[in-house]
């Protein structure tokens, strides 16, 4: 059998015909994206029409500290989910009319002391801490999670990765709780892939706190397919008792488009808060 015959034989086996039929004419590279898209939780479909209504009303603030890096990315994620992003400045103690706040990733004030330790004392955080007590939804991503822990809005602390190095990878996560305003669009137990990128992402707390978090269903995300940083009990994200304040180390705002992320499975975080705001309104 010559090479071409052999190839033709392989090519015309039925299984491939079915698979290649997925390809849209002229856009073969998109069929893989289509494939990825189908894996993405279908539950989003049910909330999307509602988002059209929320688009004009839901205003979500994103704080920029000096050294914030993912602030514009968080704004993009809010926009793609259907909300209106509002830039908040670290030196400004007025949150205006925002209905939720995101503390983005980065290295606030350089993080030369302890991650988040200086940001916690910024004027804007005074306002955020007060508003959170009144039920304002607050999400802390990466450095924002560190700020939330330093602010005692969430228990525990983030310390140096067990491997000592910065780790950037596409990280599998299990959504352990959909009973928070930031995860309501997910199915509990859903597996999602979201970028992780941090040097001090190892979650630690004393045993009693960890037990309580577990018992109260406040572990929101856990690492799947390998613990990347030595976080205790594989914890990637937690919530306060009310489920309004959530902090996580991985970056859902970097998984909102197939083109620029490992998929769009992080979008659900922003969809969740917008739909809960809509429900309240």
């Amino acid at each position: 059998m010559d090479a071409n015959q052999w190839l033709d034989e392989v090519l015309w086996q039925g299984e491939f015909v079915e698979l290649t039929a997925w390809a849209e004419p002229g856009r073969p590279s998109d069929c893989r994206r289509l494939d990825a898209g189908r894996r993405v939780f279908d539950s989003l479909a049910s909330v999307r029409p509602a988002l059209e209504v929320a688009r004009m009303s839901a205003r979500v603030g994103v704080v920029t500290f000096p050294g914030s890096l993912d602030d514009r990315d968080a704004q993009r994620a809010i926009r793609l989910a259907g909300g209106t992003p509002v830039a908040l400045w670290h030196g400004d103690a007025d949150l205006g009319d925002v209905q939720a706040v995101v503390l983005p990733g980065g290295f606030s004030y350089g993080d030369y002391l302890r991650c988040g330790a200086i940001a916690r004392f910024s004027p804007v955080m005074g306002a955020v801490i007060d508003a959170a007590a009144g039920g304002l939804p607050v999400l802390g991503i990466c450095n924002g999670f560190q700020v939330l822990c330093e602010s005692h809005l969430l228990p525990g602390a983030l310390v140096r990765n067990a491997g000592l190095h910065f780790v950037c990878r596409d990280q599998g996560l299990v959504v352990e709780s959909s009973r928070t305003v930031w995860t309501s669009a997910y199915d509990e137990g859903a597996r999602i892939v979201v970028p992780l990128k941090s040097g001090e992402g190892r979650y630690v707390a004393d045993a009693r706190t960890l037990d309580a978090l577990q018992a109260e269903g406040r572990v929101v995300f856990r690492y799947a397919e390998g613990n990347p940083n030595g976080s205790l009990r594989d914890i990637a994200g937690i919530a306060n008792e009310a489920g309004t304040v959530v902090g996580l180390m991985p970056h859902p705002e970097h998984a909102v488009e197939d083109l620029t992320g490992p998929g769009d499975e992080g979008l659900g975080v922003f969809v969740s808060v917008l739909s809960s705001l809509l429900a309240v309104a």
Partner: peptide, 18 residues
Amino acid sequence: GGVVSSTPAGTPDSRASA
């Protein structure tokens, strides 16, 4: 060095309390 930690999730070590 295998510095990029990849402890399998759910192992006793990674679930140990501080």
